[in-house]
């Protein structure tokens, strides 16, 4: 699972961005975006702002949950009271890991039963199956829903309640630290957040929850 987190100001201007990977289930916390995807992420986030603006008036919540999806990239949003947007793009390891591995799909296609059994132990196989079946998301969720890993595996299930809850906790902690960061008298509204302390705290929140 790779994450791209961005804070967007009131003028749709970026204030802060941070890329990281999952630390759960033995993840090393490194993002696995391809070079192309890294550049694309900013555009995906930016395009989802329109949907955020639509959704933000429909309920009184600050956490808007999943707002947008672009192929395998899912975008969750959190709004602060002053209309600053926290956007988290999360991507299951499918596209990046399958391209990194030599030929996972070819071996999978030949022996389906062995794939099902191996999916019990390795989550990285599941998304590669979804690319195999034409990348349709519904098949992924039903497949992983059938396995016993669903309760702990945030990575494989971008739409599950567990993921939603983990991201909510992540946002809550970032929000708390964000408030502290902007309380600094030398910070002005819509200024880029350059505080290394804040960056470290976002990283810590990412490690803790995602």
């Amino acid at each position: 699972m790779s994450y791209y987190f961005a804070i967007i100001g009131t003028q749709d201007n970026p204030l802060f961005e941070y890329e990281f990977g999952t630390s759960k289930q033995g993840g090393d916390g490194m993002a696995r975006f391809t070079e192309q995807a890294r550049q694309l992420n900013q555009f995906i986030i930016h395009s989802s702002l329109d949907i955020v603006e639509e959704v933000q008036w429909t309920n009184g919540q600050m956490y808007l949950k999943l707002v947008d999806r672009f192929f395998t990239s899912y975008i969750s949003c959190f709004l602060t009271a002053s209309n600053i947007k926290f956007l988290l793009l999360h991507q299951p390891p499918s596209s990046s890991s399958s391209s990194a591995l030599p030929h996972p799909s070819s071996s999978a296609s030949t022996s389906t039963p062995s794939l099902v059994s191996s999916s019990q132990s390795s989550t990285s196989v599941i998304p590669s199956l979804s690319t195999l079946t034409g990348g349709s998301n519904s098949s992924t969720s039903t497949l992983t829903g059938g396995t016993s890993r669903t309760s702990t595996s945030i990575a494989a299930n971008p739409t599950s309640p567990q993921t939603e809850e983990a991201i909510r906790n992540f946002f809550a902690e970032v929000y708390e630290n964000y408030v502290k960061a902007i309380m600094s008298p030398f910070y002005r509204t819509n200024m880029e957040i350059r505080s290394p302390v804040f960056r470290a705290r976002v990283a810590a929140a990412g490690r803790k929850y995602l």
Binding site: K180, A181, M183, S184, P185, F186, Y187, S195, V197
Partner: peptide, 8 residues
Amino acid sequence: ADFVELPD
């Protein structure tokens, strides 16, 4: 000095 971070 709570919350304060000096300008960088």
